[in-house]
Nucleic acid binder design. Structure first.
Length: 866
RNA sequence: GGCCAGGUGGCGGAACCGGCAGACGCGCAGGUCUCAAAAACCUGUGUCCGCAAGGGCGUGUGGGUUCGACUCCCACCCUGGCCACCA
């Protein structure tokens, strides 16, 4: 039977006929019945359990695809949709490529919104959370996400948070969890303390933006700082897998600076040693400790500055200066942290009247007090080197203090107008003259260290993680406070310490659990005496610091997870989530993973070697948000256009890591694309089949198909979903241009197209697949393989340049050599015209791509260089 | 001030390793079908000169390297982000 040629354009008989008679309602017969298709396939996939991951993956064939799990706020927004769709494409592709895929979802169930809702509406936080989870679960199901729902859990379930408690106790025994009295950040609105990472640049609460205040409280900490160096070092492992941007942020946050502590003796200290004894009985021979990253500038130190809060300010201030110093300290107290840490404003300060002895020269240098020195960093005291530090320079100018240059650039003089902060050669530095400042750094510290006047020191910005929260909706910290034995961990067999029912919610700055007598009253496991239960709960970021490991073995009731099983799945192969967690969750989880490794639970250095931070979904250029009122509800869009259409749009409109501007026209474009394939499928299934046509059009369509397989496969590997979809659109256009229907070639192309479409638009692809007469689900259908023979053309088009400028293209045999190419090029009239009578002096030939003919007097070579 | 990312048509974006800039989509214009419209389909769409053939110019700006630069190097401008009196 001959191939059936049909015009692609009008009279597509049965369907356009039907279309005319389906005027009632907006749905025409050619429109894809999304709702029907979606629920049908969602049910089918779930019933068949296709997305259930095996208990243990085959070695080398695992793909653990994870999205940052949601807080159950009650409504999923377009940002969730984007996040989870991106992961879904990666997971579905991996499954088709034959991997054992773990693609789980769960709920970050603890947190303030639930507790605030409980206070406001007099309901149970647990119930509120459960209801929200149900609502969001239904939304996620309607999006066609290939989750292993059998592994779902919520962190507010005692079956989960008991392991938080167990890890906490293990850390307590290792000294990694401890309590201390310390100045802490307290949010007056949330009525709880916060970790450093949870306070914004302007000193605001990360959650409610209220200004944070300082309090002095006894709180629980995890020794994050102990892992500072390792967290920094292991970023090598993440290079390439994480964006440079997040790595930079973490590097900044860890904030390593290498330098030295140097000890300055106080001059004439005998006369005032009594003052020190009163204030600090342990101090015998007071030496003021400073931290510097520039020990090479030591000889340029002409004065010293103490932070106003420094405990030595009082004893060092001579009677004559007391009034001035005290008034300055008062002034400082009134400034906010923000005011103090801005460079703006003149550098005020006062002289204490005391002097220190320069450790190298024994010179007396004055001791000043100024708030440009911060108590929180280093030791709260500095040696001031105005010649080589811009801040010290400014201070010295204002207060007429001496400026002594000790480092000089190689070939020019120092300007006396500013601090010289670059590299150079030492002078005015005693025995160190002539050394480069880099060499001098080590040598100066070395020499001082021999006299016990200095030691090398590394300083980090990263501090320990304050995990206590004075709120009820979190994991109870499993500690009992005994008047005799102190803080005693709750014995293993008493875990979990469960939240009591009927918590008297309220934000009072104290945990509501303190008012639950039955919870508080306990006995000490050591001495059996009466003890009080710890009532603070853990920061919810503890919950999210190891949830990725729990997914590997979520039903385990004996342990957090089986080590072997988790080690087989971990690390996570692809982690997808928003960038806002760069310095919170992503630091905490890396820390936790390393602790778990040291406790023997996991064996990989990093939990997430590959991280994709998806961009925001914007409308009118700003992130969609309820408060701005510029949101688009994914559910409404799904009802209007279908989940697959929305998926395609979200994937196609921008590369994953960039922001994506919402555009309903764009959505309609994607609907048009799906409809085009849909019509081809209907056409094909209603057309009598024919053998492959031996035409050049058929051959070229086949080649295009194989090139598309190649392109989509590669694009999926590098998570370039937008370009993958573009090439599917190209193939669809080629299929339309082919104009033949029902023959082998168009059938093969159509089937390939549908299989390639599956990760992006799975419901529609499954439906089309079965309409094409296929009986096996696409989930289990192997990913198409490009036939290398079909990828290459016998002939190729060579770009022809004359003197580097593109002039023409020429058809040439594939793998032709330079000689043949040049002959073919010179046969072209255009090229002949451009060459004129000029002689060819050089030929650049890139096989199968390009030939560039250079003439003797070509313009660029003849360019006079003057 | 330091660091990072980026700057390509009317718009979103493509060009992955230095080799035909603008794939794909949106929008716009013209056409086919229709009594008409919608849908669908076809054609065109960086810019300037030209009826056309053809040619000039074009990837923030200015230089450089190269036979050849969106791509590499130097300087600068702009946008976004992060850090920042961190000693």
């Amino acid at each position: 039977m001959p191939s059936v040629f049909r015009k692609a354009t009008p009279d597509r008989t049965p369907n356009s006929f039907l279309q005319k008679f389906s005027i009632i309602g907006t749905v025409s017969a050619e429109t894809i019945p999304f709702q029907e298709i979606e629920s049908k396939w969602q049910k089918f996939w779930e019933d068949q359990g296709f997305f259930r991951a095996p208990q243990t993956p085959r070695p080398g064939k695992k793909f653990y695809c994870l999205v940052m799990f949601p807080y159950p706020s009650g409504t999923a927004h377009m940002g969730h949709f984007r996040n989870y769709t991106l992961a879904d494409v990666a997971a579905r592709r991996a499954q088709m490529e034959g991997y054992d895929v773990l693609h789980p979802i769960g709920w970050d169930g603890f947190g303030l919104p639930a507790e605030n809702a409980a206070i406001q509406h007099k309901i149970d936080a647990a119930q509120w959370t459960r209801d929200n989870i149900c609502r969001m679960r239904e939304q996620f199901r309607s999006w066609g996400l290939s989750y292993d729902w059998s592994r779902e859990f919520a962190t507010c379930d005692p079956r989960y948070y008991r392991w938080n408690q167990q890890f906490f106790i293990q850390m307590f025994h290792k000294g990694l969890a401890y309590q201390k009295h310390a100045p802490v950040n307290f949010c007056p609105k949330c009525q709880t303390v916060l970790a450093n990472e949870q306070v914004g640049e302007a000193g605001e609460c990360w959650r409610c933006q209220a200004p944070v205040v300082q309090k002095h409280l006894r709180q629980w900490f995890l020794k994050l700082s102990q892992y500072a160096e390792e967290l920094l070092r292991d970023m090598r492992e993440l290079e390439g897998g994480w964006s440079a941007y997040v790595l930079q942020m973490q590097r900044n946050w860890i904030g390593k600076s290498e330098g030295a502590e140097i000890y300055f003796e106080i001059a004439d200290c005998e006369s005032r040693i009594a003052d020190f004894k009163i204030e600090n009985p342990e101090i015998r021979n007071p030496k003021l400790t400073i931290f510097t990253t520039r020990p090479d500038t030591l000889f340029g130190a002409t004065f010293m500055v103490l932070a106003p809060e420094h405990p030595w300010v009082e004893p060092l201030t001579v009677p004559d200066q007391k009034a001035k110093v005290h008034s300055y300290m008062e002034q400082t107290k009134k400034k906010s942290l923000l005011q103090r840490t801005r460079q703006e404003g003149e550098k005020e300060g006062v002289f204490t009247g005391s002097y220190a002895l320069h450790p190298a020269t024994q010179e007396k240098i004055p001791l000043w007090v100024s708030d440009y020195v911060l108590m929180e960093y280093g030791t709260g005291a500095i040696m001031a080197v105005p010649a080589h530090d811009a801040r010290d320079f400014e201070f010295a100018k204002k207060h007429r203090l001496p400026i002594r240059y000790v480092i000089f650039p190689k070939n020019r003089k120092n300007s006396e107008e500013s601090a010289y902060e670059e590299e150079g050669i030492l002078r005015n530095s005693g025995a160190f003259d002539g050394l480069s400042n880099l060499e001098a750094k080590g040598k100066i510290v070395e020499q001082l260290a021999r006299r016990k006047l200095a030691q090398p020191k590394i300083q980090y910005h990263l501090k320990d993680w304050l995990i206590s929260r004075q709120r009820a909706w979190g994991t109870p910290i499993p500690i009992l406070h005994c008047p005799q034995c102190g803080a005693v961990p709750v014995p293993q067999e008493q875990l979990p310490v469960q939240l009591p029912p009927n918590i008297p919610y309220g934000a009072t700055g104290e945990s509501p659990l303190t008012r639950v007598e039955s919870f508080v009253k306990a006995s000490c496991p050591k001495c059996r005496g009466a003890a009080k239960r710890e009532t603070d709960t853990m920061d919810t970021f503890v919950d999210s610091s190891w949830y990725y490991a729990r997914y590997c073995d979520p039903k385990n009731e004996k342990e957090p997870f089986d080590k072997k099983t988790a080690q087989a799945w971990l690390p996570v192969d692809l982690y997808i989530g928003g960038i806002e967690h760069a310095c919170m969750h992503l630091i905490y989880a890396r820390f936790f993973h390393k602790v778990l490794r040291d406790l023997g639970w996991v064996n990989s250095p990093e939990p997430f070697p590959k991280l994709l931070n998806q961009g925001m979904v914007t409308l009118g250029g700003t992130a969609m948000s309820k408060s701005k009122g510029n949101t688009v509800d994914p559910q409404g869009m799904i009802r209007k256009y279908g989940a697959d259409t929305l998926r395609l749009f979200i994937l196609f409109a921008a590369p994953p890591e960039k922001n994506l501007e919402w555009s309903e026209e764009g959505v309609e474009g994607c609907l048009r694309f799906l409809n085009r394939i849909w019509r081809k499928v209907l056409d094909f299934s209603s057309t009598p089949k024919a053998a492959a046509a031996q035409t050049s059009a058929a051959e070229s369509l086949t080649k295009k198909t194989h090139r598309t397989i190649e392109k989509v496969t590669q694009d999926l590997r590098r998570l370039s979903f937008n370009t993958a979809i573009a090439s599917l659109m190209e193939l669809t256009n080629s299929l339309y241009a082919y104009q033949v229907c029902g023959d082998e070639t168009s059938g093969q192309t159509l089937k390939t197209l549908v299989r390639l479409l599956y990760p992006f638009a799975p419901h529609v692809a499954e439906e089309m697949w079965s309409k094409l007469g296929e009986t096996q689900t696409l989930v289990l259908s192997p990913w198409p393989q490009a036939n290398p023979a079909k990828l290459s053309e016998a002939a190729c088009t060579l770009a022809v340049q004359v003197n580097g400028r593109f002039r023409d293209r020429v058809q040439i045999q594939k793998d032709a050599d330079a000689r043949e190419a040049q002959n073919a090029a010179q046969d072209r009239p255009k090229i002949r015209r451009h060459l004129g009578s000029q002689k060819i002096s050089k030929v650049i030939f890139v096989p199968n791509k390009l030939i560039n003919l250079i003439t003797e007097n070509n313009a660029s070579a003849a360019k006079v260089k003057d």
